[in-house]
Amino acid sequence: MRRVSRIAVAGVATAALAVTVSACGSSSSESAGQGKNLGLALAYDVGGKGDQSFNDAATAGLEKADKEFGYKSTAVEPQDGESDADKVQRLETLAKQGYNPVIGVGFAYAPAVKEVAAKYPKTTFGIVDDDTIKAKNVADLVFHEEQASYLAGVAAAKATKSNVVGFIGGVDVPLIHKFEAGFKQGVQDTKKGVTVKSQYLTETAAEGGFSSPDKGENAANGQIDAGADIIYAAAGLSGQGVIKAASTHKIWAIGVDSDQYKQAALAKYKDAIFTSAMKDVAGAVYNLAKSVKDGKPETGEVRASLATGGVSLSDSNPAFKNNAEVQAAVKKAEEAIKNGTIKVKTS
């Protein structure tokens, strides 16, 4: 009995100590400096810089803004296994240091942006790939990925000879389902009887679905064995493996997010890249920074579509650009989406 009560006392004392310890000291954001606008700040999601895709596109927007406005912007990477509280702290630190706008790259930042935006009403916040946050000082930077994917589907259906086309998604999540849905619809509307083989590399981003070229290459080889002669990869860095496999087997690949035909890392395989379904994250980031600079910050949902030019199909590969039949079909579909006669599904 005596022992138990001693343990209880020790437990209570430890707990009390924990509370008092954390009650002392000022908060880190209180003591951070405040001054003029330092520029824009990007907070990356897991994957971070160097993914040759989504995050790097955001960085490109940041660099453009730096060059034009003389900003000294910053970009911060997350840690593995962090929670919303860490994201809140990251955004808060950036806002407090005087960055404006502060942009969360990736939908995982949504709860954090919501919380921090309420605390810093004078700072503009951006959130990429999320449209759930409605606040005066928040711009939801979202994209009609399915529209560009539809056009990719049209191009694939026109280009296939085996009547089998492939789709490889990085991670099995709603965002990537949009790419698949648009692509499938584009194929089916263009040519009846074409099979679309769909595959996702992993269930969660933590398993590396967006960052494993080897996984992409294996999946692509499997689809090629099954007869696919054109494969659309929406898989971030893993897409490089898909493009490599396509190049080895002399079939077509369709790139994603940026114009992959022009990327230095893929120069060796560029002849296999038929086209790319582009998503202009760089433009969205730059435009938000510019709107803040001009004193009229963007707010609410800013959705890029074929009509705004925020999503599009690249035509830097001559084999694609000079193929009159494909071009005609793509142009026709593009007009139909823009004027609303074709509604592209998102799932």
């Binding site: 924990a18 954390s22 000291g25 860490d86 702290q89």
Partner: peptide, 14 residues
């Protein structure tokens, strides 16, 4: 950083 109360809260929670 360990002296700041908000970081302490993050540390204890984690």
């Amino acid at each position: 950083q360990a002296g700041y109360s908000d970081v302490q809260v993050l540390i204890i929670n984690q």
